[in-house]
Design a protein around this nucleic acid. Structure first.
Lengths: 239, 239
DNA sequence: GACGGCTGCCTAACGCCGTTAGGTTCCCAC
DNA sequence: GTGGGAACCTAACGGCGTTAGGCAGCCGTC
């Protein structure tokens, strides 16, 4: 018996690879942090690893797939879900954690907004949130809406926030014809954006709370309470 | 008196230009509709006009600026603001009109999500909406939040909606470990997305309605009612 | 009616990009 | 030792955004 373990193509590596998937993601994040999303190219990520661009295509199918990996790693780092507490607290804390994380990582919001496929880490986070909302008495559709809308809101808010401010400020002068826009720009330019963000989170939660009580009083269509509450699944394969 | 009007550089054109700004936008929209956002290049837009790519730079500073023009033209086509009715109706109808328009134009949501500067048409639409919300008794900050959040919500929703469905459906099989995700994907894949969208709009409006009554009962900080309601400004220079 | 100056296009080219084809090295299994 | 595969390499292709510089045609001025 030469070897008892399975002989898949994965573990018969001739040499320990110099470019692992983690190293690839780390290099991509480094380039992203240093030069921004627009300047992130396969050649630069390869250079970060001391390698030529073509070599990356052995580990990754596409630049698109590399960006997907980066996005999913951002989600993984941003995960901070309250495993205790009701749906409100869970939704609120996840929103704020995601908000802070998008602010902490350069161009993270733009990166996330450009992705079109959900990675495993995102699926995991969404799953936990759905479980919380189910436990709170929301139907499938309502829980799905709540989850997606909150994620969309956070992303969109940071995206708006990171609009180049000089461009807005110079516009502040020549919109005298639009009296209300001036107020809107003042609000945007002001440094109270974090309060504004929190305000929006509370409005969305308010709307959900109304929906929940209305649904439990008048169960039309979907069952208002679910008998079995599928709770948190085991964490995914961390990358 | 040779000429009585002002002698700016704009109207001393030697020849009537073959490439007007409107033609440029029209060509860009044509390429966008035919080939999608990823394939939209300066060379192709130029070819659409029977012209070489370099010539576009006489009319436009950047590809970025061209995309800004396209985005603003999308906004202009999508404007459909109820000039009568209360803030609720105005917000709701604008949201649905924007939703329909993003669906009707290929990659319009991705285009809008990628923009970072607001064009004049967008400013106009935002101004009208802010006026409606002021008339409804909202403060500056609340009106600004409501306007931006609704716009963000619509964009984000369409973006999520246009996630390639096959990728999701194949994922539907291998997420057995995440029981709630299955429900979420079912909701996403289902053809009831328009109802889901409308649901979200109503939740946001619900949250705003609560906020409004709470503010008018307890006027903390901002005045709950504004004495002068700056109403609709004249439409901007349509391009 | 000659003429500088401007508008509005052109050709040519630069450097970067994503991606592919095919070659080379090196280690493990047999 | 030798076959085979993993993991890199070089070289190149076509496309991209953008710039430099040139040239035709029309303007107002003399």
């Amino acid at each position: 018996m030469v070897s008892a373990d399975d002989n898949t193509a994965a573990n018969t590596a001739a040499r320990p690879p110099a470019i692992t998937r983690e190293a690839l993601v780390a290099a991509g994040m480094a380039v992203l942090r240093r030069e921004g999303l627009d300047a992130l190219s396969m050649r630069k990520v390869a250079a970060e690893l001391g390698v030529r661009a073509a070599s990356l295509y052995y580990h990754v199918q596409d630049k698109e797939q590399l960006l997907d990996l980066l996005a999913d790693s951002v989600v993984w780092d941003a995960r901070k879900l309250a495993t205790t507490g009701d749906w409100e607290r869970c939704l609120r804390e996840a929103a704020h954690a995601y908000y802070r994380h998008l602010h902490a990582n350069r161009d993270a919001a733009r990166l996330m907004a450009g992705r079109r496929t959900a990675g495993p880490n995102l699926l995991y986070v969404l799953d936990v949130m759905m479980g919380r909302l189910h436990a709170g008495g929301f139907s499938d559709a309502d829980a799905a809406w709540a989850t997606l809308t909150m994620a969309t809101y956070v992303q969109g808010f940071v995206l708006q926030e990171q609009t180049p401010k000089p461009a807005l400020k110079e516009k502040r002068a020549d919109v005298g014809q639009y009296p209300n826009i001036a107020a809107l720009i003042d609000v945007l330019v002001g440094d109270n954006s974090q309060e504004l963000f929190a305000f929006g989170v509370e409005r969305i939660i308010d709307g959900l709370r109304i929906r929940r009580t209305a649904e439990s009083e008048n169960p039309s269509g979907n069952p208002p309470e679910r008998p079995t509450c599928a709770d948190t699944a085991p964490p995914p394969a961390q990358r």
